[in-house]
Design a protein around this nucleic acid. Structure first.
Length: 438
RNA sequence: GUGGGCGUAGCGUAGCGGUUAACGCGUCAGGUUGUGGCCCUGAAGAUCGAGGGUUCAAAUCCCUCCGUCCACCCCA
């Protein structure tokens, strides 16, 4: 048992039964992003590790303790993508997208890797829908990416979620804010939880979203970033709010919202379920990162974007009671009994498939009953029966599995007849599901 | 990295010191002459996560390890 291979910790197989969810999500992402003028980009699964060390910030947890880094045979220092934004910015620079019409709108679905302890909604490999708008400082595009993400969820049947919106200002005013925050906490350091004492040194902003009871009293009176914004950031934030109101997005300004990546400025947001207090319930998050492209060696280029975890979206869909049946359904199932029928069956199968008809063959040598059972299990619409008699007569028996009626027809007419029977009721094929009424 | 729960056939479970480890679902095969779904019968499938210990006897008790799930940190 222990000798048998298992998927590595924190990874998972997406089995056929779950594929409809993946398909629904990627389709929704493709369709909605198209409506917003996005184009698809695909970046490599691994990049130079330095891209993330510089871009995401080498003191962030994502880079410092979670990145899958390795050296290849040529001694290159590489990393499995831990997050998408720096990779897309790299592509923007590498391909001179600054000379495309601005802003550039890109989306992708991409696997992400983080060496983390797995738990519900957290995996070492997960997949994100990622959207970025590069080259615009306009607060309206902040609102636009939020709206876009909202619409994707809406299409997928996710209802009870809320946008938590915050602003962490620009780097300069944020530095003075962080000093104020530290001044506020400094006299009370010994009352804080050990985690928060560490946060005080490493990432003071995180003090604001501590869940530890010992930190709650102080948290209340702490200065909040959204309440002390610089004038330009305030104006920006107000405009994002107004735009979201104009399109009826359910959002709240969350003064405690901070994000773990260094490159964010001004707008930050998360979308979370309203009725789920779990830790990993955030299904999508993002923000503005006007400084990132410059950090990566490019010209100052304002940009905004988000990532949303497909695995978490699926969990949320299921919590919302969205059920997608497995779509396995076959049009025709060829039952062939005698040795003389095998080759005929095989050729007919090829002809049917060439005509666009999903066709499966029974297993050679199995009894007719067994093959009919297989036809049923495959949710076939038609069974095509080939025995010694039919082969000798140059005919086939075509049987509808829903009504049970059947007819003997000339071999030469089988493809046309099957095509007609199948196209007569296209819905049944499209819907799939293999449901049986009993 | 820290803390807690759980590990019995493909899946879900029962058994919690004592003869060949049970049940449901699933799989395969049958239920007479070439016909599915329901039903019936049968079969295959488990070194009871691994290693060690206690005992006349261990799936059942103890220890270690591994795996998994949940929470913290952090994140989608």
């Amino acid at each position: 048992m222990t000798q048998r291979f298992q998927a590595p910790r924190g990874t998972q197989d997406v089995l056929p039964a779950m594929q409809p969810y993946w398909k629904a999500i990627t389709t929704a992402a493709e369709e909605v992003t198209r409506l917003y003028g996005f184009q698809r980009i695909d970046t490599p699964v691994f990049e130079y590790a330095a891209l993330f060390e510089k871009g995401s910030g080498d003191t962030t947890d994502v880079v410092e303790k979670e990145m899958y880094v390795f050296e290849d045979r040529g001694g290159e220092h590489l990393a499995l993508t831990p997050e998408g934004t720096p990779a897309i910015c790299r592509a923007y620079l590498e391909h001179g997208m600054a000379s495309w019409p601005q802003p550039v709108r890109l989306f992708t679905t991409h696997p992400m890797f983080r060496y983390d302890r797995p738990q519900k909604g957290r995996y070492r490999q997960h997949t994100q829908v990622d959207c970025e708008i590069l080259g615009s400082p306009d607060p309206l595009v902040d609102a636009e990416v939020i709206e876009l993400l909202w619409r994707i969820y809406e299409r997928l049947g996710i209802r009870n979620v809320v946008v938590r919106l915050g602003s962490i200002d620009d780097p300069e005013p944020r530095r003075t804010y962080v000093e104020r925050l530290k001044d506020y906490y400094r006299p009370h350091l010994d009352q804080l939880s050990p985690d928060s004492q560490r946060r005080f040194e490493r990432n003071p902003l995180r003090l604001l979203d501590s869940k530890d009871e010992r930190d709650l009293p102080l948290k209340e009176g702490a200065p909040k970033p959204v309440e002390t914004l610089s004038a330009p950031a305030q104006e920006h934030h107000d405009m994002v709010c107004k735009a979201l109101e104009a399109v009826g997005i359910n959002y709240i300004v969350d003064p405690l919202l901070v994000r773990g990546l260094d490159y964010y400025n001004r707008t930050v947001f998360e979308i979370t379920p309203l009725d789920d207090e779990r830790a990993q319930s955030t299904i999508g998050a993002g923000g503005r990162y006007d400084g990132l492209i410059e950090i990566l060696g490019g010209p100052p280029t304002p940009a905004v974007g988000f990532g949303s975890g497909i695995e978490r979206i699926i969990l949320e869909m299921q919590r919302n009671g969205v059920e997608l049946p497995a779509g396995h359904r076959i049009d025709a199932f060829i039952v062939h009994m005698s040795p003389s029928a095998h080759a005929v069956a095989f050729r007919l199968g090829g002809e049917l498939r060439a005509a666009g008809i999903a066709t499966q063959l029974g297993e050679s040598g199995r009894s007719m009953k067994s093959q009919m059972r297989s036809a049923n299990a495959a949710s076939a619409r038609l069974a095509i029966i080939l025995g010694e008699d039919e082969v000798a007569a140059g005919t086939a028996v075509v049987k509808r599995l829903d009504t049970g009626e059947q007819a003997t027809i000339q071999m030469a007419d089988v493809v046309a007849q099957v095509q007609e029977a199948v196209s007569a009721d296209p819905d049944a094929i499209l819907q799939g599901g293999g449901s049986r009424d009993s």
